[in-house]
Every structure is written in structure tokens, then in C-alpha cells.
Design a protein around this nucleic acid. Structure first.
Lengths: 149, 149
DNA sequence: TTGTAATAGTTGTTTTTGTAACTAACAACA
DNA sequence: TGTTGTTAGTTACAAAAACAACTATTACAA
């Protein structure tokens, strides 16, 4: 008979998903209703807003998103005139992406929402707790950096 | 000019999603390859395995899953002969769900995998960190219980 | 009673995602 | 050169999720 001291509510993949979903809900409703964006869209937007000009490949690497997701997000963002794509001169396969003024404005707007929402989210946690949470999450999000296998 | 001290990597909804995705990956490959299950499927399976007979409604409430998701998961699990459905005598709308012996076996198997995987996941964290993480996640997963709005 | 609202669960349709195959461009090396 | 392999990004198709409308049953109140 296997161990009985297992609870679903403490199983990390489950718990993490619950927390992630709950904590994304409100923010999601903002970028969705205000700009008709999908989750992939705002991620790309934020990457470009925060880190400047990037290629689709760069974004995929940083955000761990598959290239098809990014390709489609960029298409949508370009249609909305939030992003401009320019071919690289040296290597004509790669495309440089950057925000238009309109995209920049949307980014600034959503960043403020995000920032505000962040403080709301962490309200039930004291600052030590929040710090510990972030540190643990970073470790979980980047497993290879901490394992030996 | 808005605050510039905002980083995507520390934005909780983003970070939580990254951690959740990374930490679900390996476990997902097990229940997928071993039983052809979807995420919704193992969640329903685990609910029934851990808490005994439940209705679809119960599961939806506990797991915060939409009823259509559960309906279809139950269909799949019933096809696999992992779950048995019996109509309630009093209220003929409700259906009681429980695991068959075959379903029970699959649950026990996956529970062991989960338990083992859990220790692997928490390996890079010390026990205080793990505890803090769980407590914080529980708070984030159940916002209404901690807010005043 | 009977008409209205509510609830449990299902089904149908549309979006979104995942996966694989594809095009175009470059790299490296015989 | 040309041939093979690799890379950036797109497209096509299949799988899954989201959303809305539906059936069947119960609750409740005029």
C-alpha cells in the first residue's frame, strides 16, 4: 500500500497551475478587453517594450515560447500596428521587431496596469514572503540551472 | 514618464506561469505516454482517487474547472474504463463518479510518480523555502479568502 | 397545480494551441 | 562551385480549450 500522505492541494505542479491561473485572470481581462490581445501577444509586446528591438528567435529563447506562437503573435501585433518588422541587412532570414509609437503607448499603459496589479497581488504576503516566493519560482522555472542530471 | 523598475522576470503572473509550465512538463509526459491522458483527465482521476466518490459539480468546484472540461474528461475516463458513473436516486440530474479497480490502479501508479517527482522538484529548495513557497502559493491560488474587496 | 427560475450535465461551434512540414536563406566543406 | 546541413520564420493540419446554447430535471412560489 503506497503512502497516503499525498495531497493534491500541495502537489507543486497542481498548486502552481492554480496560482498561475488565478493570478493571471484579472490582468488577462485587461489586455483582452482593452486591446483584444492574447496571452502570447502581451508577452511579445512586453519583451519588445522592455528589451527593445529583438528578433522572433530572441523572444522565443527568453520567453520559452515556440516559434509558431511568436510568429502568429507578431502577425497580430503587426496588424494592430503595434509592431514593425524590418529585414536584417546581413542575414535576410532574420527579422527585427520593434514597437511603433502606438505599440509603445499600449505597452506603457499595460505596464502600469501590471505594476499596479502586482502590488495588489502581493498584498496578502509580507515582503520576506514575497522575496522567498520569487526566489523559489525562479529556481522552479529554470530547472536545468539547478539540477545535476 | 512611468516607473522603469519593472521587470518581466519578476512579474508574478508571468513568473508563476513559467514555473507552472516548467514543473508540469515531466509529469505531463508520464500520464500522457503511459495512459494517453490529458491534463484535465489526471486531475479528475486524482480527485476521485483522493477524495472518493464525487459528482462532476464537486470536482469543478474543487479544481476550479469548467463543467464542460470535466464532462469531456469523464467521458474519456469512462471510455478507458477508469471511471464508473451512477445516477443519483434522489436527484436524477446528478451523477456519482468513482474509480474502477483499473482506474484505482492507474491512480496509485500516477500518485507514486507524482510523489517521486515532487521530491525531485523541491530538491533545489531547502525545507523552509518549500514551506514558504507552498504557503504563498495557497494564498495566491485563493485570492478571495485574503482580500477585502 | 403550473409557470418560472435554477441546476447538473451534454453537445455544437468557434478560437487557440500543438505538431509537422514547409520555404528561403545562410554556412561549411569537399 | 555544389552538396549537405542548419537556421529563421511561415503555413497547414490536427488536437484541445473556450464559449454558448441546449436537454433534462428539480425547486419554488403564485
Amino acid at each position: 500500500m503506497p503512502d497516503d500522505n499525498f495531497d493534491l492541494e500541495t502537489f507543486l505542479p497542481y498548486l502552481l497551475n492554480q496560482a498561475a491561473e488565478a493570478s493571471s485572470l484579472e490582468f488577462q481581462s485587461v489586455y483582452k478587453q482593452r486591446y483584444g490581445m492574447l496571452r502570447t501577444d502581451w508577452r511579445v509586446l512586453f519583451h519588445l517594450g522592455l528589451y527593445g528591438q529583438l528578433t522572433a528567435r530572441d523572444i522565443g529563447e527568453r520567453a520559452k515560447m515556440h516559434k509558431t506562437k511568436i510568429s502568429r503573435a507578431v502577425q497580430r501585433l503587426a496588424e494592430m500596428r503595434f509592431v514593425i518588422r524590418t529585414r536584417d541587412g546581413q542575414d535576410r532570414r532574420v527579422e527585427h521587431l520593434r514597437l511603433t509609437p502606438k505599440g509603445q503607448a499600449a505597452f506603457e499603459d499595460l505596464r502600469q496596469v501590471a505594476q499596479h496589479y502586482e502590488t495588489e497581488l502581493t498584498a496578502p504576503l509580507d515582503s520576506a514572503e514575497t522575496l522567498a516566493l520569487r526566489r523559489a519560482l525562479v529556481k522552479l522555472a529554470n530547472p536545468q540551472a539547478h539540477r545535476f542530471t
